[in-house]
């Protein structure tokens, strides 16, 4: 498995009026996107996700560090560009054109022409499910349709690498599902995808690997399984009287839910499962199920970002 996108100590500083006003958008970023995987690039707004993508596309230029795309450090060369499909966030598409016209415009930019271009346009329209709307003016498109057209233009040259900036933002659930499925399908075709998002659930659902970015620093990265380690268990119990629940809570278990005699309990990391089961038993609860508890990406995210914030505050305090 080869690395298709790689950054080395990638740094981007937006110069201000003085040194103090300089804004470090990216600080020594090292990410890798492997061939045939979906890399979820996470971070809150303003963390530097889009900056990274723009750097990869040479829309802006780095202050320091290196980038390689498909092993080629000359990322502006048309040879490299040919293999990249890019969907910018919230882009506008000239609304006086029809769906297929804008695609043919973008196709020309790839140097595609004539019948082969036409055929390719038919294909991508089919892929994104826009065949029926192809003759309509973009002006009449819904947000989802625009996003699909955007995706279509990114797919036009059948690129090996897809860089998608917030691909599902502002879409309805059905559309999200469709897009998600499409991305997975593309991954399965062997394409490498870099998806930036702050919609954690989306990313969790489709990503093979994720990187979490905060304030220009990559806080953590790894496969979903690596990140979402399960060190806790949940216990579901019935016939739990409110007093019993109260007691259990006092003993150290975390009550996640307790309605009409049914309780859902979390065993904290500090307590062993047996201990917990004993506590439940002592309160005469009827244990229905015991399962390992998988952390959500959201929790990881909050944890990572939270620790970054606190360490930063600590730093600030030291200073």
């Amino acid at each position: 498995m080869s690395v298709v996108i790689e950054t080395q100590d990638l740094t981007k500083v937006y110069k201000g009026m003085s040194k103090a006003q300089d804004l470090v958008a990216l600080n020594k970023l090292n990410i890798q996107v492997n061939e045939g995987e979906i890399f979820g690039y996470l971070g809150p707004n303003g963390s530097g996700k889009t900056t990274t993508i723009k750097l990869l596309l040479s829309l802006i230029f780095p202050t320091g560090g290196k980038m390689k795309i498909m092993g080629n450090p000359n990322i502006t060369s048309p040879e490299v560009r040919k293999h990249i499909g890019y969907l910018p966030e919230g882009a506008y598409y000239p609304d006086f054109l029809r769906g297929e016209e804008i695609l043919s415009y973008y196709g020309n930019l790839y140097g595609m022409k004539g019948a082969s271009l036409k055929k390719r346009i038919d294909e991508v329209l089919e892929v994104v499910g826009m065949t029926r709307a192809r003759k309509r003016l973009i002006r009449g498109y819904s947000k989802g349709m625009r996003q699909r057209i955007g995706l279509a233009q990114a797919l036009l040259s059948d690129p090996g690498i897809l860089i998608l900036d917030e691909p599902t933002t502002g879409l309805d659930p059905v559309a999200r599902k469709e897009i998600r499925d499409l991305l997975i399908q593309l991954r399965d075709q062997g394409k490498s995808l870099l998806i930036s998002s702050h919609e954690l659930l989306e990313v969790e659902l489709i990503s093979d690997r994720v990187g979490i970015l905060f304030e220009g620093v990559l806080q953590t990265s790894g496969t979903i399984d690596e990140l979402l380690t399960s060190r806790e268990f949940s216990i579901k119990a019935e016939e739990a009287a409110p007093e019993a629940t109260q007691k259990v809570r006092e003993a150290g278990l975390i009550t996640e839910d307790a309605v009409a005699g049914k309780a859902s309990l979390r065993v904290p990391e500090t307590m062993s499962l047996y201990q917990a089961l004993d506590i439940c038993k002592s309160q005469n609860m009827k244990i229905v199920s015991v399962s390992p508890r998988r952390e959500t990406l959201e929790e990881v995210f909050v944890r990572v970002v939270g620790s970054a914030v606190s360490s930063k505050e600590a730093q600030r305090g030291e200073r």
Partner: peptide
């Protein structure tokens, strides 16, 4: 932002 889609092409 149309320029992004254009300049990201070859």
């Amino acid at each position: 932002k149309v320029i992004y889609t254009v300049l990201s092409k070859p």
